[in-house]
Deep mutational scan, measured.
Amino acid sequence: MIFPGATVRVTNVDDTYYRFEGLVQRVSDGKAAVLFENGNWDKLVTFRLSELEAVK
């Protein structure tokens, strides 16, 4: 189960963010908004829950 605050990895091989890890900001309607941070940039991207896996 994916909840806000969880760290997730993108599993969709066709996505630009494949294998990126980010922090879930919100979850609704089968989608999750994931925040990616890297140095001087932040990006908030929405994914279907089926495209994400929780990082242990």
Rank of each mutant, 00 (worst) to 15 (best):
M1W: 11
I2Y: 04
I2K: 02
I2S: 02
F3S: 08
F3N: 06
P4D: 04
P4T: 07
G5A: 02
G5H: 03
G5C: 07
G5N: 04
G5W: 04
G5F: 04
A6R: 06
T7F: 12
V8I: 05
V8K: 00
V8A: 03
V8R: 00
R9V: 09
R9P: 01
R9N: 02
R9Y: 06
R9W: 09
R9G: 02
V10G: 01
T11K: 09
N12H: 05
N12R: 10
D14Y: 12
D14R: 11
D15P: 03
D15S: 15
D15M: 05
D15F: 04
Y17Q: 03
Y17D: 01
Y17S: 03
Y17C: 07
Y18Q: 01
Y18H: 05
Y18A: 04
R19L: 14
R19I: 03
F20T: 05
E21K: 08
E21L: 13
E21R: 09
E21F: 10
G22F: 03
G22S: 01
G22Q: 01
G22K: 00
G22W: 04
L23K: 13
L23W: 07
L23M: 09
V24G: 00
Q25I: 15
Q25S: 06
R26N: 12
R26A: 13
R26S: 15
V27Y: 03
S28W: 15
D29L: 07
D29H: 09
K31M: 14
K31C: 12
K31Q: 10
A32E: 01
A32G: 03
A33N: 07
A33V: 15
V34F: 01
V34Y: 01
V34M: 01
L35I: 07
L35S: 06
L35M: 08
F36C: 03
F36H: 00
F36W: 02
F36V: 04
E37W: 13
E37Y: 12
E37F: 14
N38C: 15
N38S: 11
G39N: 09
G39A: 10
N40F: 10
N40M: 11
N40C: 13
W41G: 13
W41Q: 11
W41D: 10
W41T: 11
D42A: 15
D42V: 15
L44I: 12
V45Y: 05
V45M: 07
V45R: 11
F47L: 06
F47D: 01
F47S: 02
F47K: 03
F47P: 01
R48T: 10
R48H: 14
R48G: 10
L49Y: 05
S50M: 07
E51C: 06
E51A: 06
L52I: 08
L52Y: 01
E53Y: 06
E53R: 06
E53D: 05
A54F: 14
A54H: 09
A54P: 12
A54G: 06
A54Y: 13
V55Y: 06
V55C: 06
V55G: 03
K56Q: 13
K56H: 12
K56T: 13
